[in-house]
Design a protein around this nucleic acid. Structure first.
Lengths: 334, 334
DNA sequence: TTGTAAGCGTTATCAG
DNA sequence: CTGATAACGCTTACAA
């Protein structure tokens, strides 16, 4: 089934059929009705390959998501979809593995889909530096900062990871905790992990609190099981600590379970602070205290920046949206 | 950048360039090397639109996933990707919203991608009955049963929802529970919800246990918050129950929190049994007792059936894989 | 308002 | 082994 068939069926030319199917003007109501009817009857759909191959530009917005099982990104995508619906920009969401190159993927997809702009959910500075030059449509990096990047078509909207992390530690400190362990990611690989680590360290240092990277830090993957194992390692190392700051809620939840399994109560014996503000944190026992990123704002600002660049050629901007400390149940006074 | 440019650059014709880029035989080593080198140097990638438009068939396997935030499906996709990697079948994963029509989407994508076969992660019987006739490649419906469907190119691999649900209830009954509430989905809409409901009901009936649909059943969406609210409703209704069976782990987790918020202890005061066997269930307090679906087997059998149909034209088959009762901490003797 | 036809980047068929 | 060349299904000037 092609527009040719539809053309034959209705007696109109493929040109007219195409115009109707794309809601273009300059078509008689009669033609429009006949063609639409035939299309509906047969369930006809335009072939996206041919369409995109031929089109010199679409009004697609592309979102490239780094990591399928990142719950924060899942939520961001949900909200993004909802907010895109009322606009007339089709949203194409493309998932790549965490260790794939998001920029190269974008280059490829830009050539194929000719989107108006692209949103990167997660990304790595080095990767952008290496290949972003090949992209010429407006882009926004979401959840990571790109302000120290030399591209004038790359905006960014991120939470202030350094500050947020600092807030998390300060909150713990202000409650009297003086021995704090940190569970995070690989700082060599992840900009986010590095920033959060530095923020935590800065807070610790400024309060003259003892912290030994080798003993008090666990750099692992952002997952339940890694958080669980990290907490176990911390415990086995024999260091005394009254609080753990985990750089992601999933790790925090894993860590809490590890503590509980070792007979420690949270928060009575050990406080645990997470990062992200995932939904699940509201249903655990204890409910997870966390530094919550604002999904709504992240999406809102990103779309705004992107649409502004697209519609009025606005300059690249780098915004930081606020985080909020959710004091729930997993943290208490020492 | 197109193969034409590459052709000009290397002095070979587009035909040869295409052959090289597709690892086809009948190309001299010299040509292969020169072209590959040029392609690498420029980071050239074939345009998928043009490729798929022209190709009469690919060896793509298509997976259509119904619902982005279904944690079971996320896990299935992960395992699926891992298992597909060693084969030479590119896996294309396409996500649609829960309330979209998976079959119509498949029809469209089959026309465009010409896949060898398609895997449906989740699907609705009615939907298949209505439109599946238009699909002629081998397909497997995963997690739902399609044995009462008249298509000879549609296999299915599912957990026995009826039996599994029955097992869940039996387990509760054997522990002395006689007042069991059930939290599930909309049986009008979801085959799965209906099967699980019927299984639960059968078990209850066969033990002559009192169960009033209006009072003891909550049909809601499969989410934390809905599970939470459902448990609250159950409580507010004033019925006495010593156990809750939730048809999904996420609902069970929500329900547990609701009970805890009302001062009830799980499992001391109320036992809660989930369904699915998600990872998160191993990290909650209490750890979630659940009827676990076997993600590995589901994927393994689905791929097997699909590949058999593709490679040797095997007939459609309908398999049921076993579930396992994970007795963890949220259920105990009444 | 409608039709015609070129061409998007590729694959595939056919000669050479 | 290699090169021309005709599609694939669509959009988009341009003509009518």
């Amino acid at each position: 089934m092609t527009i040719k068939d539809l053309s034959a069926q209705t007696g109109y030319s493929v040109g007219t059929v195409s115009r109707v199917l794309n809601n273009q003007p300059n078509v008689s109501e009669k033609a429009r009705k006949a063609i639409l009817e035939a299309a509906h009857a047969t369930g006809f759909q335009l072939n996206t390959n041919a369409k995109q191959l031929k089109q010199s530009h679409s009004n697609i917005i592309l979102a490239i998501v780094k990591g399928r099982s990142n719950l924060l990104f899942s939520r961001l995508v949900e909200v993004l979809q909802a907010k895109m619906l009322p606009t007339d920009h089709p949203l194409i969401v493309d998932y790549i593995d965490e260790d794939n190159n998001e920029v190269r993927r974008a280059v490829q997809l830009c050539a194929e889909k000719k989107p108006l702009g692209v949103l990167f959910l997660g990304g790595n500075r080095e990767t952008f530096l290496a290949d972003f030059g090949k992209i010429d449509v407006p882009c926004v990096l979401v959840t990571d900062d790109a302000s120290d990047t030399p591209f004038d078509n790359l905006s960014s909207v991120s939470s202030d990871d350094f500050l947020a992390s600092r807030m998390a530690i300060e909150a713990l400190l202000s409650l009297g905790h003086r021995h704090i362990a940190v569970i995070g990611g690989d700082r060599e690989v992840s900009d986010t992990a590095r920033l959060r680590y530095n923020g935590a360290l800065a807070a610790l240092r400024s309060h003259n609190v003892d912290f030994h990277e080798d003993l008090d830090y666990e750099g692992v993957r952002f997952s339940y099981v890694d958080g669980y194992q990290a907490a176990l390692n911390l415990l086995d190392r024999g260091r005394e600590f009254t609080a753990i700051f985990a750089m992601a809620d999933v790790m925090a939840i894993g860590a809490i379970r590890a503590l509980q399994d070792r007979g420690l109560r949270v928060p009575e014996d050990v406080s645990v602070m997470g990062f992200d503000g995932l939904q699940i944190g509201e249903y655990t026992l204890p409910r997870l205290s966390t530094v919550a990123q604002s999904v709504d704002q992240l999406v809102e600002r990103s779309m705004d920046l992107l649409l502004q660049s697209i519609e009025s050629g606005a300059q690249a901007q780098h915004e930081v949206v606020g985080v909020s400390l959710k004091q729930r149940e997993s943290v208490r006074k020492q």
